[in-house]
Amino acid sequence: MEYFVQAASLIKKYGKFNAVHNFNLKIRAGEIYGLLGPNGAGKTTAIKMICGLLTPTAGEIYVLGKRVPDGILARLVGYMPQETALYLGLTVHQNIAFFGEIYGYRGQEIETRERALLKFIDLEKFADELVINLSGGMKHRVSLACALFHEPKLLFLDEPTVGVDPELRVSFWNYFDELKKNGTTILITTHYMDEARRCDRIGFMRNGALIAEGVPAELLSYTNTDSLEDAFLIFAKQDGAL
């Protein structure tokens, strides 16, 4: 089986504080993997280490068969940070085009790709609008478009639905399903347990460690619960946290 992400015995310490410890993760090619947990569980720290934005205190990470950090990965992975991470003083078009340019796209290629992305996120009419004037949900969609410009094989999405209204959250998950259909592997972090049902597999994180992992239906069946929130609480209790 081909794994796009393999993290082994990851530790990240800030002084005496263990943000992540003994973290192991394997993500298969073509799946949507959800990293779930409450705020402060270490999800963002874990995803940033896997992306290469943070250096682990210990442990090793392989992404697409390359040991992180590796310059070649820059063209193969996409990242959407928790913040909308856009240039507010630029228009939607200027933001998207900028991210195209830094990936080496030029002229007509940028136009074609930008048109497709604007259609995908349903913001074709707002191409010339300054990002600062957009609603929060629209900004999130533009942020996703920027992360997708170079058609990454592996997409890291850090809390992409935080602060997004329920209707847009559904749209976002439809986007993710469509990306998966086109062969993109996705690692997504979220603390919304309900939406994680749409992942192929999920991992529960608490206090910097992965406390359970599996297919959502299996986890529900194992804990004999109807919601992933209840399942999480049972695993947290078993872990000795509650």
């Binding site: 992306c51 290469g52 934005l53 820059a74 063209r75 990242y79 928790q82 909308t84 991470a85």
Partner: peptide
């Protein structure tokens, strides 16, 4: 967060 994006890029 834009600097994070730039650091992930080439």
């Amino acid at each position: 967060g834009t600097l994070q994006r730039l650091f992930i890029s080439p």
